[in-house]
């Protein structure tokens, strides 16, 4: 159900690694959590540094806001500016056109803490089972 070429966090971000560059977005589960994303805000400036677990932006649905946390630290190379105009892209294609930022990774050791698609799915099942 979740793309196998990506890594995941327990706070529902995904990471795609290509050499030293990590592309980061939010998972389809995060989108479903908020029902429908209607705004994307507070993305960092290209060139700025972000820290692991630091905020990398904010997504909003009707009357709800959710901080997006960075799973990795590094220098921001690019942000997806098209989301400002059309945040609905995230609802339609969270793993493709709905990416949030690209960073140049400072320290790849944080990658070891991320979950595989299978582990993420198991984590979600355990969350659901708590209810």
């Amino acid at each position: 159900m979740y793309p196998e070429n990506l890594k995941y966090t327990k706070t529902h971000e995904w990471v795609k690694v290509e050499d030293d560059v990590a592309t980061i977005g939010i998972t389809s589960y995060a989108v479903e959590q908020l029902i429908e994303i209607i705004g994307v805000y507070e993305l960092p400036e290209p060139g700025s540094q972000i820290e692991p677990s630091g905020s990398l932006g904010l997504v909003e649905s009707t009357k709800a806001s959710s901080d997006v946390l960075s799973p990795l630290g590094g220098k921001v190379l690019e942000v997806n500016e098209s989301l400002e105009e059309d945040p609905g892209i995230i609802n339609k294609d969270p793993y493709g056109e709905g990416w949030l930022i690209k960073i140049e990774m400072k320290d790849k050791s944080n990658l070891d803490e991320l979950l595989s698609a299978e582990e993420y799915e198991e984590f979600l099942k355990s969350e659901e089972a708590k209810k």
Partner: peptide
């Protein structure tokens, strides 16, 4: 969905933030 009504008129409302689930 968290808004509350009395005879079709709104009496209570709320907004939400989600952080680390």
């Amino acid at each position: 969905l968290g808004d509350i009504y009395w005879r079709s008129r709104k009496l209570a409302s709320n907004a939400v933030a989600l952080k680390r689930s």
